[in-house]
């Protein structure tokens, strides 16, 4: 599904990613953990195509295609979804207009007929229930005046509507209380299947209690320095990131 090889990326001349290698198979859930400033969000941004980041080296294959050459909207249409760490408020853009435009853009790209008004409403209702999204929110401007939890739920809601092949969740748990966290995680789990993959980026292990990953990777200084199964997350929770940094220091010697 996703093959990242030796990925280097910089912003304003500062190298953040220094050779990331990662391979995600269909249906797998991978978690990326790491201390602040290790490059987790940069990785998500580069995958989604944020222009501020310059890829200096490396390749990324997404479902066999060279991802880095695609425009952000092509990536979305090809089935890559980024749940934003900080979802953007769009004053004056009505949720329904936005969602419909988004869903129909992706459908058009996939040579599907646009959903009619009635079909779209039905589709919305179904997915809304899944993330326990209040109906009143869909009558508002996108994310405007939404609480932190509502914004994150809105991300998962959009993910459910776009039915991606690969979803990248960028610190979706940050700023969520336990109830919101559970709702978001339930939404994600409901979308897990044999074909859909997830890349869950998080600073804390707690999200991984709800979204149980197949693999856990630790990103430090722009590189994946340790990979393991879900037990690795627990170990990190217990010991913090320092022991890994110390291990690295030893290796370097």
């Amino acid at each position: 599904m996703l093959e990242i090889q030796n990925l280097h990326a910089a912003i304003e001349g500062h190298e953040i990613l220094r050779g990331v290698n990662l391979n995600i198979q269909p249906g797998e859930v991978h978690a990326i953990m790491g201390p602040n400033g290790s490059g987790k969000s940069t990785l998500a941004s580069v995958l989604a195509g944020r222009e501020e980041y310059e890829v200096t080296e490396g390749t990324v294959l997404f479902d066999g295609q060279t991802l880095l050459e695609m425009e952000p909207d092509e990536r979305a249409c090809e089935g890559l979804f980024l749940a934003f760490q900080y979802p953007v408020e769009l004053p004056g853009v009505n949720m329904m207009t936005f969602l419909r435009e988004s869903v129909n853009s992706v459908r058009k790209y996939r040579s599907q007929e646009p959903l009619s008004g009635a079909a779209f409403l039905k589709f919305i209702k179904e997915k809304q229930a899944m993330v326990e999204m209040k109906e009143s929110l869909t009558n508002r401007a996108v994310n405007e005046g939404f609480s932190g939890g509502e914004k994150k739920r809105n991300e998962i809601f959009q993910m459910a509507l776009l039915e991606p092949k690969l979803a990248v969740l960028d610190e979706t748990d940050s700023g969520l209380d336990i109830d919101a966290l559970r709702i978001v995680a339930n939404g994600v789990n409901a979308l897990r299947d044999a074909k859909r993959s997830f890349l869950v980026i998080t600073h804390y292990q707690r999200l991984l209690e709800y979204i149980v990953p197949d693999f856990v990777h630790v990103l430090v200084n722009g590189r994946i320095v340790k990979s393991g199964t879900k037990e690795l997350a627990l170990e990190l929770e217990e010991k913090g990131y320092d022991w890994i940094k110390e291990d690295l220091a030893l290796e370097a010697v």
């Binding site: 989604a48 952000p72 909207d73 979804f81 934003f84 953007v88 853009v93 853009s105 401007a141």
Partner: peptide, 22 residues
């Protein structure tokens, strides 16, 4: 805002249009 819309599948022209209409 533009990037957010493009990350949801709207091409650049459509995204700009949506923001300006808003």
């Amino acid at each position: 805002a533009l990037f957010y819309l493009r990350a949801r599948g709207l091409n650049e022209a459509a995204a700009k249009k949506m923001l300006l209409i808003a």
